[in-house]
């Protein structure tokens, strides 16, 4: 995309990005975040879901200095500025890991698997990483 405003007035689709992997062990989480930012830059209607080990991406207090990798958890706090406001966490995944919303770097909406499934069925595009 150029810096000028081309491509910003087009079709808006409902995109859902489903994050299922822990950060750092694999590159899926970072690449998934990149996809979210790109979809948001194109002003799409973006929802982001964190389930299974994906909820660990949002864990507060990440410190990657000793493993010499980039800590990308602060970037989730930038999503608001990208107008990505629909962040969902699956209740079952959170509970299985002994976590609560207070353990996460951004405010999220906690939904049951059933509710998330309903939301997923309403999307135009669903991508999982």
């Amino acid at each position: 995309m150029q810096d000028d405003d081309i491509n910003t007035e087009g079709v808006v689709k409902k995109f859902m990005f489903v994050n299922r992997r822990a950060p750092y062990g694999t590159v899926y989480a970072l690449e998934g975040l990149e996809m979210v930012l790109i979809a948001a830059a194109f002003e799409q209607d973006v929802s982001v879901v964190f389930m299974d080990d994906g909820v660990y991406q949002l864990k507060k207090g990440q410190d990657t200095k000793a493993v010499n990798m980039k800590n990308f958890s602060p970037t989730f706090r930038a999503l608001d500025g990208y107008d990505v406001e629909k962040l969902y966490v699956e209740k079952e995944s959170l509970e299985a890991r002994g976590l609560s919303p207070a353990d996460l770097v951004v405010p999220v909406e906690v939904l049951s698997a059933d509710e998330l499934g309903t939301l997923m069925a309403e999307q135009d595009v669903v991508m999982t990483a």
């Binding site: 822990a22 864990k59 990440q62 410190d63 990657t64």
Partner: peptide, 12 residues
Amino acid sequence: LGPDIAARGLGE
């Protein structure tokens, strides 16, 4: 491994 614990925000 401690560094992997810290990276994932699990130090505490």
